[in-house]
Design a protein around this nucleic acid. Structure first.
Lengths: 233, 233
DNA sequence: GTGACTTAAAAGTCATACTTATTTGGGTTG
DNA sequence: CAACCCAAATAAGTATGACTTTTAAGTCAC
């Protein structure tokens, strides 16, 4: 992971953060710093640093004479990669995957359209390569290898869009794709149609055909949404 | 603003954060904590808290025996509302507005489609009301009032989508709309077509017509994109 | 009951002493 | 001369005690 073991504050954060996002401390719960000191057996210094970070994520609010209050869920910074990771690791993972997949469905087609306009020759080559590798690994229980190329493919699309915000969603998409592979029936090979669509997207981007790149990507993400409905309608 | 004056750490953060996002300390720059202590005339405690928060935004990295290093721009958490605000306040505001408008264009149509499926009667009523108020304030130099309803309208759509991540983009959209109004020719009334489209979106949502809600919203956001091209092609 | 005043609880801040990781450089050895 | 190891210097990390500031809440007079 990102921040494991690197200092005491990181350890406390990695323990308290997930606990809060998991709902162990429901909104409105008040944590006092000296209580946290004892609980984690660390100094005020460390606790305060952790609280500041949680506060910057809008997970808690620290007020004098009151304590550290857990804020209502609607106010959390749900786009914070750290928060996303914590929630994906917790109980409402399914709900989280749903939200993220909806986000993907909105973003990726737009990103593909932009990528068709802005992709460099190198990026086009990368796309084609990853698409072909996806085809190659799409049969015969090679899900792990397939996943690697799938992630790489989507990352290139997002980066090639030229929009820094889209580009930053690469990690989120990677997380979603990984989560899907892990929690799906690991026996089945990926949907052949989806594989073909990736090849088409690569072609469309290389041909500078924004409309087609967008349409094919939309088909991919719609498929991802449908998958969720099948699993838990 | 959000965090003005609330404690020393907030003041230092509000000074250092914007400085970094503005590029005053280019990536690779090393800040030593004791230097920061002197510069802001605060204690170690405060500096460390600030550094932790900046670190959680991936703006800097703190390593022993090295110092606090400014990270490359591509690694920043560009979705962090705080970072967005800092950058909007800084020099590359135009670039930022572009990224955010592209994001809006991807998200809002999808949100409108979902809103058509999930909006409560109350939300439908709110939408209609805001749309009508937009019409009412669309002529005669009432830009400030118009902006209020415009923001409210988009907020309702995003919230009514039922997707928590979309909902959280309400603040960002508000920021973009405000920024646009402030930096545009303040003399001209809003585009009549855009106003009409908002009314149509409200109608479509009430009629549970997802496709039409999506299409009309897309027209709105495409218009917003075009606007940017006209201003700085 | 309302309003002003007091009190106490909890976070915020500071200064200092100490610990730990890590880079750098020098010296030893093959 | 290269490779390697070790020691010293450096800057962040942690702990702690003393003090300040905010503010919720209780109390008293009116």
């Amino acid at each position: 992971m990102d921040n494991q073991g690197r200092g005491l504050h990181a350890r406390v954060l990695a323990s308290l953060g997930p606990a809060i996002t998991a709902g162990d401390y429901p909104p409105g719960t008040v944590l006092r710093t000296d209580e946290l000191e004892k609980r984690f057996d660390v100094s005020r210094t460390v606790v305060r640093e952790v609280v500041r970070v949680l506060e910057s994520m809008h997970l808690v609010e620290s007020r004098r004479r009151v304590g550290v209050t857990v804020r209502p869920t609607e106010e959390w910074d749900v786009f914070d990669p750290q928060v996303i990771r914590w929630r994906l690791a917790g109980a409402d993972r399914p709900r989280q995957l749903r939200s993220l997949t909806a986000l993907r469905s909105a973003i990726e087609p737009a990103a593909a359209a932009l990528a068709a306009e802005h992709a460099t020759p190198e990026q086009c080559a990368e796309l084609t390569e990853h698409a072909l590798n996806m085809v190659a690994t799409s049969r015969g229980q090679q899900l792990a290898a397939y996943l690697v190329h799938d992630i790489a493919f989507h990352r290139v699309i997002l980066r090639a869009s030229g929009n820094e915000m889209f580009a930053r969603l690469g990690d989120v998409v990677a997380e979603v794709l990984t989560g899907r592979t892990e929690h799906q029936v690991m026996f089945s090979d990926p949907d052949p149609e989806a594989v073909t669509l990736h090849v088409r997207v690569a072609e469309a981007v290389r041909a500078r055909d924004a409309a087609r790149a967008e349409a094919c990507t939309r088909e991919i993400t719609v498929g991802a949404l449908r998958e969720l409905d099948i699993l838990a309608p």
